[in-house]
Design a protein around this nucleic acid. Structure first.
Lengths: 155, 155
DNA sequence: ACGTGTCAGTTGATGTGTCATGTACTCTAA
DNA sequence: TTAGAGTACATGACACATCAACTGACACGT
């Protein structure tokens, strides 16, 4: 039906490969860094940030899911693990027994507060400071563009 | 010793959050796409690409590890799974019994050849075509810059 | 020949992400 | 008022990543 498949040009391939490599390396690095300094996974960190973003440190399961943009199942598993480690607790909902809240514990708060400065410093050192303000803006714009593309073409 | 921890400026935070979000979404999307169309994980794909990049479709374990830039253990587990699915086979090394080769099977070759065009098309549609040539070049440059930063600051 | 160190790869434990399915609860409409 | 649809979350099975500990093979000096 269609012509020979459209391969990437050398420049395109170069950009794509670099980008993929960046993904993998940066992700692995951040993960190890966080683990080493705070005994937290990136997932833990994200959840704790979302919870501390709201004053009560307490969110409905679903709202938390929206905040971090995760699937329900992933969240459920993750919260179960975090409960086991005492970072958060589950709270029943009086009005609707199906619902549940996730609440950060004092230990969880302490952990995230201890972890955040170093994490931010790492982000700054590895990413922000490596780029000019212009490049940073471009990166933000590019990211947005691709994210839109993703939303537009879900099939 | 140091002042109050240096948080990110709004612009920096915006860029960083977008970038992280992009990571997660794009990765998940590519993974699902590959899985749906070719029954391959991203990991499978990477291995098969590395193997087809070399004429014999056959690489020493270690060379394969360098090609995809993975840790040994990860590679070992992955290859074990791929052997079980018939995508590759292991071959002993006559000269040095410690070494081993990984060889792509005809089935593996068929799988990757079936998967690649759709995958490339997806990359093009979601990423390449969403950006101007200038932006793409900037993305490549930025990626390189950060990768260098990662290499320079391993602790 | 024989330790000893190092190399190449394996294995098991644990945490993580995804899919499909399960379950308890609530709502709605006949 | 109750059957059935839909909601909110849980669970089990599996693939994947990482860490640490392990095995077996080679290399080499004594």
């Amino acid at each position: 039906m269609n012509e020979t498949p459209q391969w990437l040009s050398p420049a395109e391939q170069h950009a794509w490969r670099n980008f993929v490599r960046l993904h993998q390396k940066l992700r692995a690095r951040m993960e190890r860094d966080l683990q080493a300094h705070a005994k937290l996974s990136g997932a833990d960190f994200e959840i704790l940030v979302a919870l501390t973003d709201v004053p009560a440190g307490r969110l409905r399961f679903q709202d938390l899911g929206r905040a971090v943009d995760w699937e329900q199942s992933r969240l459920s598993h993750q919260i179960a693990r975090m409960i086991k480690r005492g970072l958060v607790v589950r709270e029943e909902c009086a009005e609707d027994a199906r619902r549940a809240f996730v609440v950060i514990t004092p230990a969880g708060r302490k952990t995230i507060e201890a972890a955040a400065p170093h994490h931010v410093a790492t982000v700054r050192r590895l990413v922000i400071d490596a780029l000019s303000p212009d490049e940073l803006a471009t990166l933000a714009r590019i990211s947005n563009r691709i994210l839109e593309q993703l939303d537009e073409a879900p099939p």
